[in-house]
């Protein structure tokens, strides 16, 4: 029975402390199933990005265990980990004269040959993914010339091409206007529900998180709380997000908003 539970959770965090030399956030207990869309919320500087970067294996964490598919994250090689988890930074560097196709095709790193050349099947997959994010018209354009919204969707496409079970996104909508925000979030929701991928993203948009996500991870001032949006509102978990705020994030406030 317990074994079935382990397989059910694609991601588990057990008493995890973030930070390298110095602990910046401690006692994180959380889990994620496939097809779940999870938002990470918290005040500025709480360590949302550090949490995502620790999950992705980019940086080391201090203590505790992060398990992906039941195995400790640190037991995976970078190659093995890239099949399990992908990471979209809040702002990827732009490279001049790199076509959108080549940028997205970079996601095939693990499946390309030693020179980085991909076969026709993979090319087809890259093309269809670019279509999925709605950028077909830009396929041969210089990726550095895309607008912020288009570039973010291209980065998501690149991550989709990587074809990992879990997608981590660091504030995917932070630099986008309202129209692009909605398009991006809709796209993520679709990916989670149709393809069964686990999507974990950090955001400052609490309303969006409550409306769209199956679960929210609240990095509060005193402690880390995991729950469904309904549970969290009931518990008053969002009240503890900000240190000097008297705001009560109850259903009344959300009706007002």
């Amino acid at each position: 029975m317990s074994r079935a539970k382990v397989i059910n959770n694609v991601l588990e965090l057990e008493n995890v402390s973030l930070g390298y030399d110095k602990v910046i956030y401690s006692a994180i207990n959380a889990s994620a199933k496939s097809g779940e869309m999870i938002a990470v919320v918290g005040a500025n500087g709480m360590g949302k990005s550090t949490l995502l970067r620790s999950l992705s294996g980019i940086i080391k964490y201090h203590r505790g265990i992060i398990r992906i598919d039941g195995e400790n994250v640190s037991s995976y090689t970078p190659g093995e980990l890239s099949i399990k988890i992908s990471y979209v930074p809040s702002q990827s560097p732009r490279t001049k004269n790199l076509s959108l196709f080549d940028m997205v095709a970079a996601g095939c790193y693990n499946r390309s040959n030693w020179l980085g050349i991909i076969d026709n099947k993979e090319r087809e997959f890259v093309n269809s993914t670019i279509t999925k994010v709605g950028l077909t018209d830009f396929i041969n354009r210089d990726s550095s010339m895309l607008s912020d919204g288009e570039f973010q969707r291209a980065a998501i496409a690149r991550s989709l091409v990587q074809n990992s079970k879990i997608m981590l996104l660091d504030e995917p909508t932070a630099f986008l206007d309202i129209a692009n925000r909605i398009t991006t979030v809709k796209l993520l929701k679709e990916i989670a529900s149709k393809e069964g991928k686990t999507i974990i993203f950090s955001t400052h948009d609490l309303l969006q998180a409550i409306k769209l996500c199956d679960k929210i991870w609240v990095m509060g001032h005193e402690c880390f709380i995991e729950g469904t949006p309904g549970e969290l509102i009931e518990k008053g978990a969002f009240d503890k997000m900000f240190k000097d705020s008297s705001l009560k994030f109850d259903s009344e406030l959300f009706t007002f908003l």
Binding site: P78, L81, S86, P93, A106
Partner: peptide, 18 residues
């Protein structure tokens, strides 16, 4: 060449690519 192309995406992303 293959890794140089991956590095164009930034170190953090290259790491996540494997």
């Amino acid at each position: 060449i293959k890794d140089l192309n991956a590095l164009l995406m930034g170190e953090a992303y290259a790491r996540s690519l494997g």
